[in-house]
Design a protein around this nucleic acid. Structure first.
Length: 987
RNA sequence: GGGCAUGUGGCGGAACUGGCAUACGCGUACGACUCAAAAUCGUAUGAGAGCAAUCUCGUGUGGGUUCAACUCCCACCAUGCCCACCA
């Protein structure tokens, strides 16, 4: 018999498949659309990591085909964009030529894997036939007011010489070249993605993916990717408040303040914590805020302010954010903001820790309950006023450690230290909880006399006496001093319910919980100290810091907040918002971190934006019939210094007639970003040659949504958000029938180099798939990449692992010689020749089927290996069994499967077969080995028939010598019997 | 700082809903075949103790629940990814 020779059989079958087009049966009833994230055809070619996702979709595609589906499995090229262009510039070839060349390489490489791609549907985003529709979508957005021009400062990469979207940055550096990005004010096109923010968010969770009419289904996306998107969209609900701006008169008068209303001058701020408004002690605007310019004449120290603003603007993104440096700012002297809730006059600052583009670009600062404000206030000696007291919920964490406290108490006793956990004076509530649960542990303090035991409490903690108790003025913290003179600050909130408060009972009723919780926190910390024999370790110092400096930023109960005092935060926010709305000085407001999509690039290699600027008519869309606006062929395509795209230099191309008035017009010379073409490509595959519509309605209805989308997790916040945005827009204008494009999304884990590092030229650890295929064959690499581990996990490459797969395939190949009678097929139902082997076989069918459906390819393959190992032990195997094995293997290793299938005498392709079903009767074992445990430990096992009764097993077990040895003379307290699994004797 | 993952032999990893931890593959050792090597096949392979039967320990650490925990609960540690002054 011939030897397994992949070098021969793989090209053979690839050719046959290509020519017969067996994958292109699109007439079946059920459809399955499997989509890969298409590659940029970069100059480097593929490394073994790239095809991992493609292999997975291919396995699933072939599986679905065998299951009787029509499968759409296309491939194409994301050819526009910076990487391709930079590559072209470096290699001094025209991007178009470079891309063409690279596509050829890529296509050849992909061809070696034997994928089921329908190359008739190949698309290329840089093809005018394709980008005609990218431009068309842009025009539609322009018509709907979703594409607009803006002059805001944007991120500019001085090296790539183009503007970038926020998403294209990595820590303030250009993602492509690592250059420091600067802020540059320039005209650009922006897509109003924020208009879709809520829908992009909601449709992740809500079952609104579905076709508008059909039954609803949920998005089957990985949680981590959904979380990343949610995080990126960053929705927060809050309120805006208008602070009136007043002047401080230049001359001091006997009146403390002469308020001069400026009439219309308001400062609007956004906050999610309106409940802390009474703690607002100053306001801050970002350096970009227009109010500064407006108040120019009124600000006494304008020069200083201006200097600060210029300095802030010159700071790079990195300096402004990356360094955990001191906060800086300058007071706008001469003006004050008035807190509408209590009419307090507050100083107004400009500081670059406030972002110009988020919310209203201005904030109310509450240093007692916001870390940033706290830091700033400390530095500029601004008052810090506490208005929130912690409530039970925010200290749930502390409560949960009570078990640990109990334990610690035991430990402490060993050290000869006795202590109690006491609820504080007002803490009876909380202590009550503890008391009820641990009545041996705690004492509830009920009255003032017992409060003295608070001393006892601290005493118990190793602090014999409270020597001093002082109240610091600023923070209104309570500070205790221990024997060693060490100050222990128990937080700014505790003294609100200090003993000296007259209305003890009221406090108790209203706010009791908080203090005790704080105390128990202290208690816990100090305990740790005792246990370390009064030596405070570094770790605990941090905990002490918590009580000293950490700002309480969580929700709680309001204090010092006028009539709102005593309300929980959430309730207070509602009431306060209502009040604002009534007074018409603010109200509910939702904000997003996500910004509109900066959509223009000052580069050559992208889709021209189909807009004409006319002096008379303004910006005019290119009429649909004139699409595509083709990218002119040019000699020079390098970016310019001016901030204008290279297209601006081509006068012949730029000068056109205005389609509206016929007068002179100029073309828009910016191009679209890399992500434009990929935002809708999933639709074009469905109908790639249609020159009337971007996708035909019938075909779209037939194929959408994409049933399976596989690609890298790095696209979680860009491509996947953009594509969803465009898809929703297309849904709104009636071009598509589904609200969401991708029903199931799986992210592929990286394949790292053999050294565990990212595969890259830089480390010299790149493995080329061509080499691996020529050495071991495509089926081996396919199998290996699916077998390495869980699909979504990053795993290092191992060529040794491929060797194992090759061995496995050779075993399968050799197994053929064991076939009893290769020419006569046996009916699996009538001729069960080997019950045990058939059991394994049917278990394998079950497992492989389920595992493919759940992307657990690694265990599917290991199940097949087990089956093969079993078959090897047999003298002879039936041809039926062997055929079933080949069928199971076929999605993973299609070439060898097809070859063996043919060798078995089959005339038609294996992929026209039916996927096997398992026989539920056969997957049950006849004999099982049942485990006998004594006190949960395995001591013996017995072979029994499946389904035996407890009584029988018990009898049998007690007859075993080993078991007798253990049980002899002891009382059997309990017997646990798990059918077909184990019996456990508790003695 | 926030969010999300992950932690099991020498390595990649398996274990369904709590029920024999380490399947499957790699590596290693020994053996068979061979003049020899490769390939292939067989046996062994978590750690420790013992001549042995066998026993003890063992899924990042410390606790807990349970007849029984990789799996559930609490606390902690470590690593990775993403986001990061978003008020």
């Amino acid at each position: 018999m011939s030897k397994y020779n992949p070098a021969k059989i793989e090209p053979k079958w690839q050719k046959i498949w290509r020519e017969s087009g067996i994958y292109k049966d699109y007439s079946r009833k059920n459809k399955f659309y499997a989509l890969d994230m298409f590659p940029y055809p970069s100059g480097a070619g593929l490394h073994v990591g790239h095809p991992k996702g493609y292999i997975a979709t291919d396995v699933v595609s072939r599986f679905k085909m065998l299951k009787g589906y029509s499968v759409l499995h296309p491939m194409g090229w994301d050819a526009f964009g910076l990487p391709a262009e930079n590559y072209a510039i470096q290699n001094k070839i025209h991007p178009e030529a470079a891309v063409k060349e690279n596509i050829k390489t890529f296509k050849k490489q992909l061809g070696l894997f034997g994928f089921t791609y329908d190359w008739d549907r190949e698309i290329n985003t840089a093809d005018p036939e394709y980008y005609k529709w990218t431009q068309w979508i842009f025009l539609k957005m322009f018509e709907k007011g979703l594409a607009y021009e803006s002059d805001e400062p944007i991120n500019w990469c001085p090296s790539c010489k183009t503007g970038l979207a926020l998403e294209d940055l990595e820590n303030g550096l250009c993602e492509r070249c690592g250059t420091q990005v600067v802020q540059k004010k320039m005209r650009q096109w922006v897509l109003k993605m924020t208009e879709y923010a809520d829908r992009l968010l909601e449709d992740l969770d809500k079952p609104s993916f579905a076709k508008a009419s059909a039954g609803e289904e949920e998005l089957d996306w990985e949680k981590s990717i959904m979380d990343q998107q949610k995080n990126w969209i960053g929705r927060s609900e809050g309120a805006t408040i208008k602070f009136e701006i007043k002047l401080v008169p230049k001359t001091k008068s006997s009146e403390r303040f002469l308020r001069l209303s400026l009439g219309k001058d308001w400062l609007e701020v956004f906050t999610t914590r309106l409940d802390t408004i009474f703690g607002c002690t100053y306001c801050v605007v970002g350096p970009e805020h227009p109010i500064i310019e407006k108040l120019k004449d009124k600000i006494k120290n304008y020069e200083e302010v201006e200097k600060y603003i210029i300095k802030a603007q010159n700071k790079t993104e990195l300096e402004r954010t990356d360094l955990q440096k001191d906060k800086t700012g300058v007071e706008l002297q001469g003006v004050k903001a008035i807190n509408p809730f209590n009419n307090e006059e507050l100083p107004l600052y400009v500081a670059d820790y406030v972002l110009g583009h988020y919310g209203t670009g201005a904030v109310m600062a509450v240093p007692a309950h916001d870390e940033r404000d706290f830091e700033f206030a400390k530095k500029y000696k601004l008052p810090i006023k506490q208005v929130i007291a912690p409530d039970l919920d925010s200290y749930k964490k502390t409560i949960k450690t009570l078990e640990a406290l109990k334990k610690l108490r035991q430990e402490a006793r060993k050290e000869g230290i006795e202590f109690w956990l006491l609820g504080g004076l007002a803490g009876a509530f909380h202590a009550g909880i503890i008391y009820r649960e641990h009545d041996d542990l705690d004492i509830i303090v009920k009255d003032e006399e017992q409060y003295q035991k608070i001393g006892g409490f601290l005493l118990g903690l190793g602090y014999k006496k409270i020597r001093e108790k002082k109240v610091s003025e600023k923070l209104t913290n309570t500070i205790y001093r221990n024997d060693e003179g060490m100050e222990i600050d128990i937080g700014p909130y505790i003294n609100q319910w200090d003993l000296k408060d007259k209305d003890f009972e009221t406090d108790l009723k209203r706010l009791n919980e908080s203090e005790a919780l704080v105390l128990s926190k202290i208690f816990q910390i100090h305990l740790k100290e005792i246990l370390r024999k009064n030596r405070i370790e570094e770790k605990d110092r941090i905990d002490l810091e918590y009580l000293k400096g950490k700002v309480f930023i969580e929700d709680g109960f309001l204090v010092n907040s006028g009539k709102y005092s005593g309300h929980p935060s959430a309730e207070a926010r509602e009431k306060m918002t209502e009040w604002l709305e009534k007074k018409k000085i603010g109200g509910k407001k939702v904000n997003y971190k996500m910004r509109d999509w900066v959509f223009s690039r000052q580069r050559y290699w992208g889709e021209p934006i189909p807009i004409i600027h006319c002096e008379k008519c303004g910006t005019v869309g290119v009429p649909e019939k004139n699409l595509p606006v083709e990218l002119p062929k040019v000699e020079k395509y390098e970016p310019t210094e001016t901030g204008e795209g290279p297209l601006a230099g081509i006068k012949k191309w730029v000068d056109v007639k205005c389609p509206k008035c016929g007068g002179p017009g100029k073309r828009e010379t910016n191009t679209m970003p890399q992500w434009a073409g990929s935002s809708w490509y999933h639709l074009r595959y469905i109908d790639p040659k249609n020159d009337k519509e971007l996708v035909g309605k019938e075909k779209e209805k037939k194929w959408m949504p994409v049933d399976l989308y596989v690609g890298g997790a790095e696209h979680a916040t860009r491509h996947l958000l953009y594509a969803r945005f465009w898809h929703k827009f297309l849904y709104d204008i009636g071009s598509v029938s589904t609200k969401e494009p991708f029903e199931k999304l799986v992210h592929v884990g990286l394949i790292q180099g053999e050294d565990g590092r990212k595969m890259s030229k830089r480390w010299g650890n790149v493995i080329n798939p061509d080499d691996v295929i020529s050495e071991f064959g495509a089926d081996s690499i396919r199998l290996y990449e699916m077998f390495m581990g869980p699909f979504t996990q990053n795993i290092a490459w191992s060529t040794k692992g491929v060797v194992g797969m090759r061995r496995f395939l050779e075993k399968v190949y050799r197994l053929k010689s064991k076939i009893q009678n290769p020419n006569i097929k046996t009916n699996p139902k009538s001729k069960i020749q080997n019950y045990k082997l058939d059991t394994v076989l049917h278990k394998t069918i079950k497992k492989v089927t389920e595992d493919i459906e759940n992307f657990r390819f690694n265990t599917a393959i290991s199940a097949m290996m087990i089956l093969v190992n079993e078959m090897e032990k047999e003298e002879k195997i039936s041809s039926t069994s062997y055929e079933l094995l080949i069928l199971l293997l076929s999605p993973f290793a299609p070439h060898i499967a097809e070859e063996l299938w043919e060798k078995l005498g089959n005339k038609k392709s294996i992929f026209l077969e039916k996927w096997p079903e398992y026989d539920p009767k056969l997957i049950r074992d006849e004999q099982i080995s049942l485990v006998i445990q004594i006190n949960g430990k395995v001591r013996d096992q017995v072979e029994v028939a499946a389904g035996v009764k407890e009584e029988e097993v018990k009898k049998l077990a007690l007859a075993q010598d080993k078991i007798v040895k253990y049980i002899d003379g002891k009382n059997i307290r309990k017997i646990i019997f798990v059918p077909d699994r184990l019996i456990n004797f508790v003695i």
